[in-house]
């Protein structure tokens, strides 16, 4: 099979990251975290490269990747939206917040919007229970996110984008 340019690039990038690690199975999770941190997700080629490096069956890398919540198999959006569904958030309407995000972004949890602007997911608990319901937007926890605040957050991104568009013009 001929490797596409993209696949070759992923292989190279993964190899560079692997150089910093020892060939111990115990390094698998830290390696996956590092690769995802740099590439944004875990492409097939990266997983194959890792399996080869650690001399383990490819399926086992895949098994670990699909087991843990942290790892993703698809490219993320520009902005990440993580709706907290911890107990306190749930009881204060976290599921309503999630619905609002789904409705506005037109995607389900675990998906990326077609324009690659946002990806939506849930998180079990970010430990900010007193600010419930919480949504973590681009690593910043936002407290008391009611459906109207969802609209507010999206509007601020839109304005930001328009402003940047004007500046670049």
């Amino acid at each position: 099979m001929v490797m596409t340019e993209e696949q070759a690039r992923v292989r190279q990038q993964t190899k560079r990251i692997l150089n910093r690690f020892g060939r111990r199975r115990g390094n698998l999770v830290p390696i996956l975290q590092k690769v995802q941190g740099e590439i944004g997700y875990l492409p097939r080629e990266a997983m194959l490269e890792i399996a080869e490096f650690l001399d383990m069956p490819e399926i086992d890398v895949y098994g670990v990747v699909t087991f843990y919540n942290q790892f993703r198999l698809n490219p993320p959006g520009k902005h990440s939206v993580r709706v907290c569904l911890g107990t306190a958030c749930h009881m204060k309407g976290g599921y309503i917040t999630l619905d609002a995000w789904k409705r506005r972004l037109g995607i389900d949890r675990g998906q990326t919007s077609p324009d690659r602007e946002f990806d939506l997911d849930t998180v079990a608990c970010v430990g900010c229970c007193v600010m419930a319901p919480v949504t973590v937007v681009d690593d910043k926890p936002q407290g008391k996110v009611a459906p109207t605040k969802v609209d507010g957050i999206l509007l601020s991104f839109k304005l930001e984008k328009e402003r940047q568009g004007e500046e670049s013009r």
Binding site: R24, R25, G26, N27, L28, V29, L32, Q33, L54, G63, V64, F67, Y68, N69, Q70, F71, V123, A124
Partner: peptide
């Protein structure tokens, strides 16, 4: 990496060893 079951001792160890928890 985010798996509640890893609070269980043997699952936690499995994840440190590069296995599913």
């Amino acid at each position: 990496s985010g798996a509640f079951v890893c609070g269980e001792e043997t699952a936690l160890i499995a994840s440190l060893e590069g296995e599913p928890g």
